[in-house]
Nucleic acid binder design. Structure first.
Lengths: 224, 224, 224, 224
DNA sequence: CATGAATGAGACTTCATTCAT
DNA sequence: TATGAATGAAGTCTCATTCAT
C-alpha cells in the first residue's frame, strides 16, 4: 500500500473512532509511523484530508446506488434497492460511513469543500425523495409524511454502521431483507419485493479496514 | 436562571452542535458572557461537565422509562412503551440525547465517570433486552435475532433527535405510533397495541432549549 | 488560637514543606478550613504574609542572640553562644528557620519588605563577623579566612533544621556541644569553653508546630 | 552548543536561582531565545526536564565518588574522600547541586521519576553510612551517633554550594582540607590523612555554567 | 467577618502548519 | 521524500486578588 493510502486508512480509523476534532496530526503520524511533517507531503491539510475521504465516500455511494437502480422503474423495487444498499454499505464500511454521516460539521462553514459535500449528499437524498414521491403519485405507496418516512428509514439504515458485526448471528442478507420489509410496510406498499443485492456493485473504499467496529463482546450497544 | 444552569444549557447546545472536542471552554464562556476563568467557579472541568450532563440524562431516561413501564406486564405493551418513550424523549430533547448518544467516547477511557455512564446505559438497555426475551419466551414475539432487532429499533428511535421538527407535518404522536407499529411488526407480535404516552412522565432536562435542532429549511437531511 | 495565628501556622508548614512559590492561597485556605477570600481578612497579600513570618523570625533570632551574648566579652564564649543558639533555634524551629533561610528569593527584588529582611539578616551576621574579627585581633583565634569560616560554620548550624529529630539518639544538648567543639577547633581557639545554653531565652515562634519535620524513619537523609 | 543543552544550561541557572516552582516555561524560553512551544521540541515536560537534570546529577556524583573511593580500604581515607569530593563537587557545580539538593520536593509524589531519584540519593548516602559504620567497627573512629555525624558533615559539605567563590581568599583545596580535618576530628579518627583530590575525576555537568553563584559583593551571606 | 462570584493574567501544554536541510 | 526544528495560536486550567452581599 502506498503512503497516501496508508494515511487515509489510518485517518478513517481515527476519525471514526475518536472523531475528527479529537484526532491530531500527531496521532495520525504515529499511526502510520511517520513524522509529523511527513504527513504534509501527502496531504494538503487536515481538513482537506477529511474532505477527500468524504467526497470519495459520497461519490462511491451515489455511483453504486445509480448502478443498482438502473433498469428498475418500479418504485417498490427502487425503494428496496435504496434500503438494501444503504444498509449494506453501512454494514460493510462502518468507518467510512460513520465519518461521512457524522463529520460534516467539521468542515468549515462556507468553505467550498463543505458546499461540495452537501451538494453530493443532497444528490444522493434526491434518489430517496423522488422514489417516495413517485411511489406515492403512482398509488404504489401510501405515505402520510414523506419527509418523516424518508428520514426515519435512512436513520434505520445508517444506524447499521454502529452495531453490525459480520460474525454476529444475523447475516447481512437477512438484515437487509428485514429492513426492506420494514420499509415497504411503512409506506404501505401494494406490492412485495424480493430483492437480491449484487454486493459486487457496492463501492469499495480502499482505506476501509474491513475489520468490524469494536463492539462490546457482551453484545450490548456498541461503546463507540 | 442561575449561572450553573446557564452554563449547562450553553454546553448542551455547543456539545450537540459542534461536538465536545470541538467546543472550547472559551466558546462556552463566550456563550454565557463570562470569563474563561469564571466558568471554573461553577464547573470542575470540561470533562466533568460532560459527565454531569450525561449522568443526569441517563438517570432521567431510566426513571421515566421505569415509571412508564410500571404495571404493564405484557411484552407487547412494554415494547410499545420502550419504542414510544425513547422516540419521544429524543424528539423532545434532541440536544441532550445527541450528547448522550454520541459523546461517550469523549470520556477518558478507564475513568470512573465513563464507567458510571456505561453502567447506566447498560441498565437502560436491559429493559429492552428483557422485554424482547420475555416476549420471545412467552410466544408473543417471533424474533430471529434479538440483538439485531434491539439495535435496529433503538437506532430508529434515537435517530429521531437528528431530524424531528415540532413544526413539521407529522405530530410527535404520529411518529411514535408509526414507530411502534414498525417495531411490533418487526417482532411479529401476535397482539397489536394502541399506546397512549403520558408525556408528563417524560424526563425534563432543565438545560434543554426546547428549541428545535437546526434543520436545513429546504427540508433536507439535517446538517449536523 | 485566633484565626490570624492559625493562618500563620498553616503558612509556615506549607511554605517550609512545599516552598512559597508552590503554595497557593487556595492550599492555605483549605488547610485552615476557610474560604479563599476569607484569608484576605487577616492577611494583606501572600507576599506580605511571607514577609511577616520572616521579619518576626529574624527579630526573634536577633533578640535571643543578643540576650544570650550579654555579659560575655570573651570571643570564645561568644562564638560558642552563636553556634549553640543558632543550632538550637534551627533544631527547635525547623519550619520557621527553613522559610527564613530559603525563601528570601521569593520576596520581590527591590521591595521594601525584602530590603528590610536583608538588613535584619545582615544585622544578625554582624554578630558573627565581629566575634570572629575580635577573636582574631585579640589572638584568641587563628583564622586564615574569616568569611570562609563564618559561612561554613553557619551552614553547619542551619543545616540542623533539615535533619534534627528530637526523638533521635542525640540530645539537642549533645549536638550543640559537638558543634561548638567543631567550631572552636576550626578557629584554633586557645581556650576551650563549656557552654550551657539557657533554652528559655530562645525565641518562641507561636506558629511553629513543635512537631518534628518529617524524617524518613530508616534514618536516611530527610527526603525533602 | 545544541539546543537541548542550551535549554538545560538555562534551566539549571533558573531553577537554582529562583526555584523550580517559580520558574516558568516562558522564563526558560526567553532565556534561550525560543518560543514557548519550541522548548517542547526538546523537552517532554517541565518536570521531566527537572528529573533529567537531577538524575544525571546524581549518577555523576555516584560515579565520581566510586572512582575516587576505589582502592582506598581505610575508613579514614574513605571519609576524607567523601568529604573532599562532596565539598568540591558542590563548590564547582553550585547550580547543579543546589537543584539536586533542594528540588526533590518538586517531583510529583509517587511518580517513578521521584522514586528513581530518591533511590539514587540513597545509594549515594550508603557510601557515607557504610564508611562511618566500618570506621566505628574497626575502632578507627569513635562516633556517639552515626546518623547525627553523617548528616551534620554532609550539611557542611553541601552548604558550600551556597557560598563558595573561586575568586575568594580561600582556595578550594584549602576549604576541602579544612573540612576533612573537621570531619576527622568529629569522628575522633585515630589516624590523620593528607588527601590529594584528583579534580579530573569529578563529574562534569555540561550545563553547569562554571560561573560563580551570585554573591553579595559585600561578602555577606549569599542572597540566594 | 465571611463568602460566592468574578476576573485578568498567566500557568503548562498541544495544535496545525511551515521550512531549511 | 522525509525530517528536525520551530512557531503563533489556542487548548485547559490555576493564580492572586477584589468586591458586593
Amino acid at each position: 500500500m502506498d503512503a497516501g493510502m496508508k494515511i487515509k486508512a489510518a485517518a478513517i480509523d481515527l476519525f471514526a473512532r475518536d472523531g475528527y476534532a479529537a484526532t491530531s496530526i500527531r496521532d495520525l503520524a504515529r499511526a502510520v509511523n511517520m513524522t509529523n511533517a511527513g504527513i504534509y507531503h501527502h496531504v494538503t491539510s487536515k481538513e482537506a484530508l477529511l474532505a477527500d475521504l468524504m467526497r470519495v465516500g459520497q461519490l462511491g455511494l451515489i455511483d453504486a446506488t445509480d448502478r443498482l437502480l438502473a433498469h428498475r422503474p418500479a418504485p417498490a423495487d427502487r425503494l428496496a434497492v435504496l434500503i438494501g444498499s444503504l444498509t449494506a454499505i453501512h454494514a460493510l464500511n462502518p468507518m467510512t460511513t460513520r465519518v461521512m454521516d457524522g463529520e460534516l460539521r467539521s468542515l468549515t462553514p462556507g468553505s467550498s469543500a463543505r458546499d461540495e459535500i452537501i451538494a453530493l449528499r443532497d444528490r444522493y437524498e434526491d434518489r430517496w425523495r423522488t422514489t417516495l414521491a413517485e411511489g406515492a403519485d403512482q398509488g404504489d405507496f401510501r405515505i402520510p409524511d414523506q419527509r418523516l418516512t424518508r428520514l426515519a428509514l435512512m436513520a434505520m439504515c445508517t444506524g447499521t454502521s454502529e452495531w453490525y458485526r459480520p460474525d454476529g448471528d444475523a447475516s447481512l442478507e437477512r438484515v437487509c431483507a428485514e429492513f426492506v420489509a420494514i420499509g415497504l410496510a411503512s409506506v404501505r406498499s401494494r406490492v412485495q419485493v424480493s430483492m437480491r443485492l449484487d454486493l459486487s456493485l457496492l463501492p469499495d473504499y480502499p482505506w476501509e479496514p474491513h475489520v468490524d467496529p469494536r463492539v462490546d463482546p457482551a453484545g450490548r450497544h456498541p461503546i463507540r
